[in-house]
Design a protein around this nucleic acid. Sequence first.
DNA 1: CGCCTGCTTGACCTCGCTCAAGGCCCGTGG
DNA 2: CCACGGGCCTTGAGCGAGGTCAAGCAGGCG
Lengths: 264, 264
Amino acid sequence: MIDSTQAYNHSINPLLAMLERVFDLTEHERLSLEQVPLRQHVFAAEQTIAREGDRPTRSFMLLDGIAATAKVISTGKRQITNLHIPGDMPDLLSLHLEVLDSDVRAITQCRVAFMEHWALRHLCEENPRIAAALWKNSLIDAAIYREWVTNIGQRQAPQRLGHVFCEMMLRMKAIGLNSGMSCPFAVSQAVLGEVTGMSTVHVNRSLMELRGEQLVSFEKGVLTIHDWDRLAEFAGFDETYLHLPYKPAAAAARSRQAQSHAAH
Amino acid sequence: MIDSTQAYNHSINPLLAMLERVFDLTEHERLSLEQVPLRQHVFAAEQTIAREGDRPTRSFMLLDGIAATAKVISTGKRQITNLHIPGDMPDLLSLHLEVLDSDVRAITQCRVAFMEHWALRHLCEENPRIAAALWKNSLIDAAIYREWVTNIGQRQAPQRLGHVFCEMMLRMKAIGLNSGMSCPFAVSQAVLGEVTGMSTVHVNRSLMELRGEQLVSFEKGVLTIHDWDRLAEFAGFDETYLHLPYKPAAAAARSRQAQSHAAH
DNA sequence: CGCCTGCTTGACCTCGCTCAAGGCCCGTGG
DNA sequence: CCACGGGCCTTGAGCGAGGTCAAGCAGGCG
């Protein structure tokens, strides 16, 4: 199942595009990145990409689609602890933690690029700035977890849902997948329930409330936020925790280009 | 308030003890660690050690006491996203993330050791294994956050509380602060409410239930688990997510010694 | 002694869960 | 082309876990 559709190759590494969104690479860094062998694979919706208890020898970057990290508890209920969008590396942690403590599952169809651990380790040893950037990335993941703990622990259902929508919109924007205040977000209400820790029925009712207030629409796999300021206010959303990079518009555009380049 | 009671000095670095619990240091690593200047400070209970929005130029290791990372939402409710025990570095993330997204507050009286970022950066550049170990540490933090999301999102009140108790017991054991199945845990029921996302009243009732089942006692700042297996079963606790290091008993004892050495 | 903080208990209420049924959309097969 | 079936969304009714408010209690400390 974790078998690949094509052999490892040396096409442009998507890590390169991801890192260029953050800082300018040296020639040496660029070369090192290009030497990391890649293996692409496509997973159908619902397939498990990595399983709790696994001891992977490689990690992957999500290139396309939406995936989720999730835990199942003894009663059989499932909690999604993180949603992944293109550019994320959901199991990079296995580079340092031997055994996975959660499943990673494809929500929609997902295209991913696997990289062997030995290659990533070599990359990090040779390029401390890249290592630092990946470390930083995992710190941002942690910041998102903190916000989710707060979201689930403290906010009422409609606010909780609104908060998730705000987060996803900004993260999608950061990788250029939005168009205005719309972005692709093809998840079912059942999945939103696993994300927010609430029942599908209550997700539905909360959603109706947000719709009724003209704050969002959410249909056909597209999320649209009609009034960002009011939704952010309503949900108590403050983007600080996403630690999005400040960068001049020109640089942002350049790296967006590099990104879509790598993706095709 | 973030002023120090004594000047930076070069006494044994508690990082050294913490790292020795994980792997054996080379002479060079040891020397580098000893060159990181330390500044100790004591915070009274309830004091804020670091504040949301801060841009710290140094990070600290908790040497003594219990601290908490917390977020306040617009309604004024507070969620604790992480409890810290000696050996933790609650704001190490500021090494890579410019601005803090949460407060760090002393729950009990806390003794901490500050280290300047420039010194830590230098340490990491010179010693890739130390950098990797710190990175790994932040990945374990993230794993704990994932479990908390799951705990708060999916478990009923008594199970949720039991789960927190199991986690704290194991973390305390890992640094040798337990005696048998008892460990110091001087937090109020109100704090447990902020940890679990439930009201103080309901913490109290859940606690009574756990006591009634002869699973735990929790009084005078000491947590005791009377029947580990039954509590773990009850709370659905699986320690995998703590990623505790396997190590031979001898080594564990040695590093416990080093730890208590550094602490006095 | 009196106060303050934290624990305990009761009464009431509500947010969100469960169970259940009906509706819509879309893909598949006759 | 239409019938059928399966997801997924929607809605209703009833219930229960946990919140809120309020009061009483116990222990430590000035």
